[in-house]
């Protein structure tokens, strides 16, 4: 198991009452597989991602990543340990061009100190060229040798459509050295052609056998198509898990989440 969540509990405090969003949740993610996390709106899926990637404080329980605890690490440290994240509805950095968006995702952050560029410019320039070459290689391998994105490297993030920004945000994750990728609704708001491209990108992510994908999705045909495992989150716990067919054909999941009687 690459990721183990043990007895995770989280309460959100309101003005009068506190609300238990996760209630002793236990969940494990198998290495090298695609696992889909499904559940209704407000069931705590994104909150669980926030807990894993260090953005949510105030929970109890243990998180083990490759057998080592993640508790109390900052989001940046967790990312450096190898957990990448695609946020729901967050596009590219709008004021950076495509190339800089890709470079910023690189696992090599040397040269990003304010003085290093002034002190050792040659080395930094060489590193920047290497990152550019890596970015172009990734774009070519994902979108084809003659793709439009390698010709738009200097276009600002804001100049791309939402769907394109989603594709590039996924492509950007190849720049880092991630062994676990948390993808929050990668296909939301994206047209069917791009959904197919996203499917291919996610399959490429796990192709090396070293990377694991945990994704949140409401697109059930997509989940059936791509996921190896599926977990259903409701009432603060994982209620069912198994293959996508087993979970999605479960009577309770059908009734309470999919609305099929």
């Amino acid at each position: 198991m690459i990721l183990e969540l043990q007895n995770i509990t989280l309460n959100f405090s309101g003005s009068k009452d506190s609300f238990r969003i996760l209630d002793g949740l236990n969940f494990s993610v198998e290495k090298g597989r695609i696992t889909a996390l499904i559940g209704g709106n407000g069931s705590g899926k994104t909150t669980l991602f926030n807990i894993i990637s260090g953005f949510q404080e105030g929970f109890t329980g243990n998180i083990l990543f490759n057998g080592k605890p993640l508790h109390a690490l900052s989001p940046a440290k967790i990312a450096q340990r190898g957990i990448g994240r695609l946020f729901q509805g967050k596009p590219l950095f709008q004021d950076l061009n495509l190339l800089d968006n890709m470079k910023l995702a690189s696992g090599d952050s040397s040269g990003e100190s304010p003085f290093s560029y002034l002190i050792n410019r040659k080395k930094i320039d060489a590193g920047e060229q290497e990152k550019e070459r890596q970015a172009i290689d990734i774009l070519n391998s994902l979108f084809g040798a003659d793709n439009k994105y390698t010709k738009m490297l200097h276009n600002m993030g804001s100049e791309f459509s939402y769907g394109e920004q989603r594709l590039i945000s996924l492509a950007r994750l190849f720049m880092g050295n991630y062994s676990l990728l948390l993808l929050d609704e990668p296909t939301a708001g994206v047209n069917p052609v791009y959904i197919n491209t996203i499917r291919q990108i996610i399959l490429r992510m796990i192709a090396d056998g070293k990377t694991t994908v945990l994704l949140i999705e409401h697109n059930m045909p997509f989940v059936r198509d791509i996921a190896d495992r599926c977990a259903y989150l409701a009432d603060g716990r994982i209620q069912h898990q198994g293959t996508p067919c087993e979970v999605l054909d479960n009577r309770e999941v059908k009734n309470s989440y999919l609305g099929i009687l």
Partner: peptide
């Protein structure tokens, strides 16, 4: 510089900068 790039990104979206390490 690469430092300026990170600062510009922080202005756009600080959470994503953290998530990129």
């Amino acid at each position: 510089s690469p430092y300026g790039r990170v600062l510009t990104a922080i202005r756009s979206d600080e959470l994503s900068v953290s998530a990129l390490g």
